Computed example of a mutant assay.
Amino acid sequence: MTDFIVNDSESDLDSDEELQEAFAKGLIKPGLNEEIEKIEKKYTNNVADLKVKLTEIKLNLPWVEKLDLVTTIAPLAPDVALQMQETAQRRKNLKENSKGNIQYDPTQDPVLNEFKRENLIHRQAQAAVVEGLKKLKELGIATRRPDDYFAEMAKTDEHMQKVRKNLMAKQAAQSRVEKVRPLREQKKIAKRVQIDTKLKQAAEKKQMLEPLKRVRKGKASDLDFLDDKKGKNSKGKGVQDKISKKRDLKNQKFGFGGKKKGSKLNTRESTHNMDGFNNASKKSVNFKNKTFNTKKKNQRPGKSKRKNKR
C-alpha cells in the first residue's frame, strides 16, 4: 500500500516536471487571462436634441412661483470681520504653542474654514433676501411675516444649549490660559534671577575663601583682602547713613523736637502735684458787687518800700 502511494507521488512529480519543461519550450501558453479588446467610447454632444428636451421639461411659470435668484455675496459686517480675525489669531496661538515651532497656515485650518464657509452661506442668503424683497415690493406683494410663524431649526434647543455651554467653557479656558501665561513667565524670570544671584554669591564666597585657605596653610600672610571686603561694606553703609546738609541745618535750627507720643500722659510727679486744685475755695466772692477778691500771699512790696528797706 505504501509502495503504491509513493509511486503516485513520483508520477505527480514527473508530470509537474514535464509541464514545466513544456512551458519553458513555449509549447504551453497561459490560458487564465484573456485579452479583451479596448473599445473607445465616443461622446456625442447633440445640442439640438438637448435643446428640444429642455423645452419639453421647462415650465414657463411666473417668477413668484419659482423665486429663483442669482445674486452676489453681501458685504461682510465689521463685527464679523473682527470676530474672524480674533478667531484666526486665537487658533494661531493655540497651534503654535501646543505643537512647537510649526508655521500656522489659516487656509489649512478646518475650524476656521468651516466658520468662513458658514459665513459665506449666510452672506449669500442675506443678499438673496434683500434682492427678493425688492422684487416682491415692485410686484406689490406683501412680505410681512405672519405672527404665528415659527422657523424650525435643524438642531433641537437642548443640543444648541450643549453647544453653547461647550463654546463658553472653551472660551473661559482660553482666557484663563492667557491670564496665567504672563504669570508663568514672571515666575521663570524670578527663578532665573534668583539662581544667578546664588551663583554670584557662591563665586564671591569661593573667591574669598581661596586666599583664606592659603593663609591657614601658611602659604601666604597677607590679609588685605579682608580689609577690602570691610571697606566695601562700610562704603555701602556710609552712603545709606549720609545726611544731607539741608536736613542737618534744619536739625541745628529747630532741633529734633523731642518725643511727641505720650507727652500728655500723667506721671508720678504730676499726679501728686495739687497746685491749682480747687482754687474756688480760696476766693471770697461778693455777689452784690460781683467782684472777686483773692487772698494773695507773699506779695512783693512796692518800689518805695524796697528803697526804704535799703
Rank of each mutant, 00 (worst) to 15 (best):
K288L: 02
L76V: 03
K288G: 05
I36M: 09
S270C: 04
R310V: 01
I28M: 07
K187W: 10
L69H: 09
Q85D: 11
D8E: 15
L167I: 06
P62M: 09
A24S: 09
G258E: 01
E18L: 12
K99I: 02
G132S: 11
S284H: 07
S234N: 15
K41G: 00
F254C: 00
K116D: 08
N289Y: 06
N266D: 15
G262F: 14
Q171D: 14
V285H: 03
V129N: 08
A172C: 01
V47E: 02
K237I: 15
G236E: 12
D79R: 11
A128I: 11
N278E: 13
Q240M: 02
Q103R: 03
N289G: 05
S304M: 13
N45Q: 13
T44C: 00
G236L: 07
Y149Q: 06
L94Q: 13
K95H: 14
K198C: 00
D79G: 01
L94G: 01
E152S: 07
Q20E: 14
T156D: 06
A127G: 04
E185W: 04
I121Y: 14
T87P: 04
N7C: 11
S15W: 13
N289E: 12
K259F: 09
L27G: 03
E96K: 04
A203L: 08
E34R: 13
K179F: 03
L19A: 12
D3M: 08
K245N: 09
T55P: 00
L76G: 05
H159C: 05
V47C: 00
K29A: 06
A127C: 08
K66S: 06
N233Y: 15
R123T: 02
K42E: 11
K53V: 05
Q103Y: 04
T143M: 10
G238L: 13
A173I: 09
T291G: 03
K25L: 07
F225Y: 12
A154W: 09
K282S: 08
K134L: 07
R192F: 07
L67R: 15
K229Y: 09
L249F: 14
V285N: 05
P146Q: 12
E269K: 12
E10C: 03
A24P: 05
K92D: 06
G262H: 15
N166L: 01
R192Q: 14
K155S: 14
L69R: 07
F256Y: 14
K116H: 11
N251Q: 11
L249K: 15
K25N: 11
E178H: 09
E152T: 10
A125I: 04
K288E: 13
K38P: 08
Q83E: 10
A24I: 09
